[in-house]
Write a protein that binds this DNA or RNA. Structure first.
Lengths: 203, 203
DNA sequence: ATATTAAGCGGAGAGCTCTCCGGATGTCAA
DNA sequence: TTGACATCCGGAGAGCTCTCCGCTTAATAT
């Protein structure tokens, strides 16, 4: 009876484990809203969820992973929005479509910035090569690469769409975005325009 | 007699303090070389220098600051190289000069990466807006802005040289650079070419 | 030489991240 | 139902960052 399920995920999650996961999520959500993500420690979350620290760390190696789980649904919805947008604007030129994607992206990170930044100061998060832990990155990169390729298709098949996409993505990473907004003082619209004139020539 | 000195820096550094600073620098240098920057804790440095943790933190709020002090001279020398290069190539077009600067920059961060990255996982370092704590940033930015301005001078006085310079600088930040090198697998030369074709059009 | 005082020292300790492992407990097969 | 066992729990504890504060000491004024 459980053969098929076991095939899908090698072992069922135990009931107590599932319950604890829920408690963690609820506790974290509550504390994050109350005090802000940065101000809440894994210890506090464990205490609020009434579990031991070991139990918490078993599931989430650091605060970042926990945050990611907390916004998983939002991320899925975000990519659904992107997909729908791309579908409805197939006939538009690729540069226009890329700009449209940025227009969807920016409000999203404005809203989810805290959770996306997550636990930046975590020791184990340091090891990861870059920001690839961010689930947005790979998917967004893929989309951007395709659009850059399409933009360059007519001319030369410039092999650096991958590079360009990386550059665009770090340009709109949380840190960079808020640096432009808060330190340089640009409005989101100005940032968008600057992005386009820097990375997408004729828009 | 000490009036003039006091005028320069409001109070002389006490002799014991100066000695401790030296001990710290020596201890840190030794440990960093022995085990790598990441693997060495502030505690260890204090112990090796035979001072209390409080004494260490009085001078360096985190490992990053200590690292910065350790490469201060290298940074000065780096900018002297830049200045000299710019002087010797005044007649070259600005895009060529910018590429030349990148050629000087890249080996520098290859050599000093560990110390430049410093104590990334430090709590107080998190607060800082971005990577402005990096002493390279502001000066490099200023230089890049001037060159971008010069590049755009003939055409329109495009007001986004500041933005472009920011984008170029995060593109060559330690994290981004090593991501391209280690994950994407580009050689330094390839990175340089991609950078030019992305940020400096006709080079 | 001595007193004054700002600067510096150092260690105790709070609170954190993360690990480890003995014991408990759900799950599945028989 | 029961036994076996993989999974999970929880908390002790190592080691870290960083602060606080009473004490010490170097520099200066007298």
């Amino acid at each position: 009876m459980s053969e098929e399920i076991k095939a899908i995920q090698s072992r069922m999650e135990r009931r107590d484990a599932a319950e604890n996961r829920q408690r963690i999520l609820v506790a974290a959500h509550k504390l994050f809203e109350q005090h802000g993500v940065d101000q809440v420690s894994m210890n506090q979350i464990a205490a609020e969820a009434q579990i031991g620290p070991g139990t918490l760390y078993r599931r989430y190696a650091n605060k970042g992973e926990l945050c990611l789980d907390l916004i998983k649904d939002s991320v899925v919805r975000f990519f659904e929005d992107i997909e729908q947008y791309l579908l409805q604007n197939q006939q538009e030129p690729p540069d226009h479509r890329l700009k449209g994607i940025l227009k969807i992206y920016m409000p999203f990170i404005e809203k989810k910035a805290q959770l996306l930044t997550g636990g930046k100061g975590s020791a184990s998060a340091q090891r990861l090569p870059y920001q690839s832990q961010n689930p947005l990155y790979n998917k967004m990169h893929q989309i951007a690469v395709e659009l850059f390729d399409e933009m360059a298709a007519a001319d030369h098949p410039s092999p650096n769409s991958i590079f360009k996409a990386d550059m665009l993505l770090i340009a709109i990473s949380i840190d960079s975005y808020f640096y432009q907004r808060d330190v340089r003082g640009y409005s989101p619209d100005e940032i968008l325009e600057h992005l386009c004139s820097t990375f997408i020539k004729g828009v």
